[in-house]
Design a protein around this nucleic acid. Structure first.
Lengths: 166, 166
DNA sequence: GAATGATTGACAGCATGCTGTCAATAAAGA
DNA sequence: TCTTTATTGACAGCATGCTGTCAATCATTC
């Protein structure tokens, strides 16, 4: 009944608050996409394809996910006719994922819902505070990352991606 | 190549920083438990059982997860001999999950690793800042939660749990 | 005590992430 | 050119979360 087993040191308190917010943000992403028969994961892939047709491997790198995870989503989206694989003249293996007209419609609908959702939220949130927290979290993230004894994952082995380059 | 498709409004920036930290925290949890053949999910269950033998349903409520998710973990732990189901005189259906001696050893080892990990981290982190962020996040979480048009999930239907009561 | 509703675990199945392995293709170097 | 290495997608399998349905059990009410 009691909560005596809940740790209460600053790091644990911080972690729990992050987990809670993370869950809520994921949930809101689902709220935005679910009514359209989609999900956050599909949204990401649709968004990338909509921004610019690109290969599954490219998407995975930029999203920071395993190639295969993205591949699976993309395959499902293709089967549902929201994206299509187009032959890539530059690489016969790696076809380009592009939106179909239906995919474009769905993505536009998602964006519309997202903007509305965001608008409602921002009516109660302080942009400055959000940015301040994001900045602080970035600093903490760097420290955390440095401490993670990284037995490099497959993904990191595959592509020691240095993002942020033009 | 470019990152023009990455949204840059305050809410998105904030969300991305949360996702990043969340991933790092999960990763560090795995770092703590992996060498012991465990995982964060198992750690949670072991910790609850170690705090006090209780039923799967109780754990799930307190953890905020679905009953079945916890059940699966507990079953695996039982099969591995880290926890055991003990008959519950108060309810013939709901047996109590308790640590076995082996489970106690593993949990103690996890705690030891965690304390060391924490100690190293806190050498570079500011406890006050962590608590300040956690406090701010709690406020944001409340706003977010209020906006989540909750078509109540099964879990919420099952138990409209009001936590925080002694 | 008997009926009714809630809780619990078992079973089955889905979604999203991960990993490893393999063959085909591309790219780089001798 | 030929050989070696890296990349890519396909296939297979695991972990952790979710959901729905069902029978057994408990708790409540009449």
């Amino acid at each position: 009944m009691s909560s005596a087993d809940v740790p209460d040191d600053p790091l644990s308190t911080f972690s729990l608050s992050i987990f809670a917010i993370n869950g809520l943000l994921l949930h809101s992403g689902e709220d935005v996409t679910r009514p359209l028969g989609q999900s956050s994961a599909r949204w990401q892939v649709l968004g990338r394809a909509g921004y610019q047709p690109q290969t599954v491997a490219q998407m995975a790198q930029e999203m920071g996910h395993a190639r295969q995870s993205v591949q699976r989503i993309a395959d499902v989206l293709a089967k549902e006719g929201l994206v299509a694989y187009r032959d890539n003249p530059a690489d016969k293996r790696a076809r380009l994922v592009e939106l179909t007209p239906r995919g474009e419609k769905v993505l536009a609908a998602i964006y519309a819902r997202d903007r509305e959702y965001s608008r409602q939220l921002m009516a109660e949130l302080d942009p400055e505070q959000l940015l301040a927290i994001a900045g602080a979290l970035d600093g903490i993230a760097r420290i955390l990352a440095a401490h993670i004894e990284r037995q490099p994952t497959r993904q990191e082995r595959e592509a020691t991606l240095q993002e942020g380059e033009e």
